[in-house]
Write a protein that binds this DNA or RNA. Structure first.
Lengths: 202, 202, 202, 202
DNA sequence: GATGAATGAGTATTCATTCAT
DNA sequence: AATGAATGAATACTCATTCAT
């Protein structure tokens, strides 16, 4: 006897629920009802709660999923892409995705009302971005003084901005162009500024 | 005939409610209960609804208030500040404020679930920022190709980022430094990039 | 000094409130809000409650007023009208009025949710109708066996029917024609029926 | 496969709720609270709303139920009864029922404040009464000029009168006797009156 | 494991009534 | 006497969660 056949069903249900939940919460925000998720996944409400004992668990699973996907994309770019542009491509790609799909990128910043525990997956994502950053700096495409947390901060801020305020593709590009310019030449004109900052923030 | 004394009481209540509501919604999100607002303002629930017949009205009033305050600050800086740094100061000030007070800056991007009507106040704010921008460009402190909507986009994105992800003062500064650099010298090193953008977005 | 001038104001307010209340309750039913009555009467809510300490009091006053008016109309008809038709005219008039004005005739049957005390005025009205009835019976226009309570029952039932179901003028007439025929010749064809009734209801 | 057993439970609850709701609304009017219905049906408030998502739905279901029962009774009489008296029996039966049970006959005239959609069931009831009427006219027990809408008008008016004003059995009979006489001999003594009516209402 | 009915605390909103001005 | 702001109980409806089938 192979693995119990029931389990196959359950697994299918689980991912169906996850997928529909992502869609529902993306459309209506985290306050959408679990009942609607169940309906759209074609299962009864009890089934949702069997798989995710709490709404919080469901949200957390979605976010974890999303982060994993984003991490994979970063890894792929790190493997195949031109080091000089991969970081910028990644930025652009994510922002476009956020704006277009109104995905759960939302949840990344956890204004859920619920506190989600996703530090693990976030760390992995950061590591992937770190790779992109380092290589870009090696090429001279990004100022060597730039640190990972600034990049992550700008990344999430622009994604959310694009998502929430519905930036047009044109606006996305113009905004990112400014950010990219900043990442490149922080050292030159912005030099004295950096010095000032160091003094202030000790 | 002076204004009716009854109104004095009512006015005091109204602002008390507004203030506490801003605090409550900032802490717990827009889905916090109106009852809690009432409790914290020390009035009965009916009083809240007498002043703001709908929760939506309350949220809208808060946002309108906030935007007005922000607009005033921009105007003040435009009047008194050094044109070369006023825009940057404003940015820095707002981001710091958002991060510190965890205010309702949140609501600016309206992930309220409710649709708020605030186009008027938003326009006024934009106008105020436009002034700061133009003057900075006259001084050569900001690239003349930069447009208002990019600035507003970066402003809200960084405010929200700071708010939601709780950027430390240090991180705030480092992130803004990148943005400021981008605003300044988009034309120089970033030259070819800009050209590319123009091609893409027509 | 004549009567205090304040009192004149108060009296005017009282009748204004009474009139608007009748209109409001007629339109929206007895569950309309007292606040609306106040607004339409152009006074503050407190003033309404000063004159009628309870909503029930207000409703009661309206009904009393209405009954008095109806009584007057009956009395007038008794004085001026043709005894043979006055009762029928009264019926017709009241039904038409109820259907047209969607007045507070409603309240006559007290489905107010509140219990109104109006036995006094109702007795007076009954006395007035009794006069019409007796005279019609003297003329031979109404069967002598008909009693007052049957007439009142039919009167209120038809008024309410017309009011609630919105009888057209045509339907009003056809329905009343049947009732009038019944009032006239209960004795003839309906004879054996009456006998049966007497046996049953002892 | 028999029907799911879960459904049995649910069905029992549904009718329990319906029955208690009818009782509650009959006693206290349509503005009685849904909570009380739930309490009296021995279920939690959520259960009531699961079965009837809106108070309006609940009221509508009650009325539909009632109309169906009334229609059945008319059909039974049409099948078994003496054509000459069946219509009168039906009248008498309904009025007695309304007065005794203080049922929701009330709702028939929809002074609910809410607008109920019951045109379907009402049409079916009318059809059933039409049968009784036609047969009575064939027998000569009812004047051939009488139309269905007059009969329905008198039927509902008397039911409501009996219900609201609490007619005693004796008063019910005496009132109905008048109505029945009117239905029978509109043509004879009432002749000139009918002519007048025809002239007026075209 | 899946189903979906039941639960009941929670939420926005209304309205008669009171009371400070 | 009038005003209108404040009160707070009441009400329809929602939704996460439990549990019998």
């Amino acid at each position: 006897m192979p693995e119990s056949p029931v389990r196959a069903d359950a697994k299918r249900n689980r991912s169906r629920i996850l997928a529909e939940a992502a869609a529902v919460f993306a459309e209506k925000g985290a306050s959408a009802s679990t009942e609607e998720v169940a309906a759209r996944a074609g299962v009864a409400i009890g089934t949702v709660f069997r798989h995710f004992p709490t709404k919080r668990d469901l949200l957390q699973a979605i976010v974890k999923d999303l982060l994993e996907r984003l991490t994979e994309e970063a890894a792929t770019l790190a493997a195949d892409g031109d080091p000089a542009t991969a970081l910028f491509d990644y930025f652009r790609h994510m922002v476009a995705q956020a704006a277009a799909k109104k995905t759960v990128a939302d949840l990344l910043a956890a204004d859920t009302g619920v506190q989600l525990e996703v530090s693990g997956p976030v760390l992995t994502l950061s590591a992937a971005v770190q790779t992109l950053l380092s290589r870009a700096q090696h090429c001279g495409a990004v100022d060597p003084a730039v640190r990972l947390d600034e990049v992550m901060a700008l990344l999430t801020a622009t994604c959310q901005g694009a998502l929430r305020s519905g930036w047009s593709p044109d606006l996305q590009e113009r905004t990112l162009t400014i950010v990219f310019a900043g990442l490149r030449d922080r050292s030159s004109q912005a030099g004295e500024d950096v010095a000032a900052v160091r003094r202030r923030s000790g």
